[in-house]
Design a protein around this nucleic acid. Structure first.
Lengths: 340, 340
DNA sequence: GAGGGTTCTGTTATCGCTAACAGAATGACG
DNA sequence: CGTCATTCTGTTAGCGATAACAGAACCCTC
């Protein structure tokens, strides 16, 4: 790979130029810029004026070289499913800016984790957010990293015992299932998410556990790909197998809407004939008809919290490791009703 | 703001350590690592072995300091509407990795553009993607930057004459309108996008121009916020004003779906009574019922192209400036039909 | 084997900043 | 007025890499 053309910075202004202009030493300039140590008001004023006059901008590379810190966090996602990190994305960008860090992104195939981590070490990254939708790493980080760079996983299964921030999908599934049970449903079908999606796995597991607890047989399951179409197809498949169920647990709102469409086309009314519970509280959930009962997650908050926790770990490395679980909430709208 | 705790890099391996281990000079190590100049097979082997043995990772800060290049591109969005850049996002990340660049992100209020740019200069960023949804900058970049750092705007109006990559919204509107005209529609309503959205403005303008060309009066306009609910409400408002229109041009697919719902609830059939053309070809467009006729844009490709062009500009700064327009395509499905 | 190119390697200096140290200047106090 | 702490400032050195230079080793060729 050829080296890119050098940015044509005409003549960079350095601390020495500023020092000369202000009639002080470079060290004093540095002290003013970093607001560190003792500086007289006079020096401060002189330096500030010189900085403004010359348009001085510190060279982060030199600072990095000396301080061994880049003030940058990196987000690494594995595989090609950025789907899930679009939600938390804005929150992450905002939070890192609020906390004074830059943010950088990388997508890495699982096989190239080692390279990605080398790149991180190379760039003196201060901390890492790992997003591993398919749990390919299994929460395992190369040893080399364990002690050197703070990291936080975003969205690991609730059993994960490393540093992580996730939504509690077991709790979410609990809310959804209990809501249906409270309404008297006993024939409950499920449209679950992809088999390799860690969130989907957790929610599905929870449903199996709860069903077993109350003595229900969770035999009616279809798998969807989280898309509208996936939900549509899954619902038709369910109807083809059995049409006596009175409720469907759906793994996300898009599929829930697709499923409602399929049911409507087949002459079933929601919620009179079949109750539907979605998941996510997506933007359209409140506005479809009937409005969707769903389990709400705040993705922006998730992103924000992950960065917040990472920065805590960066600044206080000795702090105990924890898995922060955010609690989703049930939002009851019109798509669920008493079982017939 | 307190300086974050220093990353506890125990003892960093440097070129000198590698040189010592391999029994060559530091310069030779550098040459092997950068695959530059003449190196004997013997040296190459020795150095590679030493690198592996010691786990050497180059220090980008030192490289940056010396080469004045960070190999990093930055994406800056203005205001708090990251909405539009979620689409091109994945394409940008992938493309920059393919081209050997790192990617960093920032969101900046318009008032703080100067600070954001200082930060960029500070970090020796090689190139910038500006995303300015509301066109607050009006394509104007501080002079300071003009000659120093290559940049590319993503999604400027087609008239913009600086470096940019955008979808041709005028062409897209053209496709949508012509399709309706071809079907014999003469009473065409419009649900346009937000007043401060540059894409929405262009599409709306184009519709006005075309209407005027063929002698139609485009008096039926509602404004929506690109959401499902916005489309729903806008459609109801249109019906309240006039129920003789036979088609609606809608600024995006979410609103189109909302509008279809509203029409259905009011007893109008799509496309028998009213034809609907959406915009974007969103994931669900093909699966709603009736499937949506829409103008397709490839957001992933848009992101990819923007990075590709930026890298071209970074590597060949003297290359002529251009505004690359990607052409959307009309996808005809079931929501449009001959005018009655 | 003298001259001239090509291949390879090492030495030196420098990018811009700041930690560590040391040395002034100032004031406080007995 | 001497001693000591406090405030302020400057000097030196080094972070880790590489460009520029210079020099060595190795081919050719005539």
């Amino acid at each position: 790979m050829s080296r890119p053309a050098k940015a044509n910075v005409s003549k960079r202004v350095t601390v020495y130029d500023v020092a000369k202009e202000a009639g002080v030493s470079a060290q004093t300039v540095s002290r003013v810029i970093n607001n560190q140590g003792y500086i007289s008001d006079k020096s401060r004023t002189l330096v500030s004026a010189a900085v403004d006059k010359l348009g001085y901008v510190p060279n982060r590379a030199a600072q990095m070289l000396h301080t061994r810190t880049s003030n940058t966090l990196e987000i690494i996602t594995f595989g090609n499913s950025p789907f899930k990190f679009q939600g938390p994305f804005t929150g992450m960008v905002k939070a890192s800016q609020d906390l004074g860090y830059h943010l950088s992104f990388a997508m890495s195939p699982e096989e190239e984790v080692a390279e990605a981590l080398n790149s991180i070490v190379s760039r003196l990254i201060d901390g890492i957010i790992f997003i591993d939708v398919h749990n390919k790493l299994g929460g395992n980080i190369p040893e080399q990293l364990q002690k050197t760079i703070p990291y936080v996983f975003l969205g690991q299964p609730s059993g994960f015992k490393g540093p992580a921030v996730s939504y509690d999908h077991r709790h979410g599934a609990h809310l959804a299932v209990n809501h249906l049970l409270d309404l008297g449903h006993t024939r409950i079908a499920e449209i679950r998410g992809p088999l390799d999606d860690i969130d989907a796995i957790e929610r599905h597991q929870m449903w199996l556990e709860l069903a077993s607890e109350v003595g229900l047989e969770p035999h009616l399951v279809e798998i969807g790909d989280y898309s509208y179409k996936g939900g549509y197809t899954a619902a038709l498949n369910l109807l083809a197998k059995d049409n006596a169920f009175t409720a469907i647990l759906v793994a996300n709102d898009s599929m829930a809407v697709g499923a409602m469409r399929a049911l409507a086309e087949q002459g079933f009314n929601v919620p009179e004939d079949v109750s539907i519970v979605g998941y996510d509280d997506a933007a359209h959930a409140a506005y479809v008809s009937p409005a969707l009962t769903t389990v709400a997650q705040d993705f922006d908050g998730l992103g924000r919290e992950s960065i917040k926790y990472l920065v805590e770990r960066v600044q206080h490395p000795s702090q105990a490791v924890e898995h922060r679980l955010l609690q989703p909430e049930l939002v009851i709208r019109e798509s669920t009703a008493e079982a017939v």
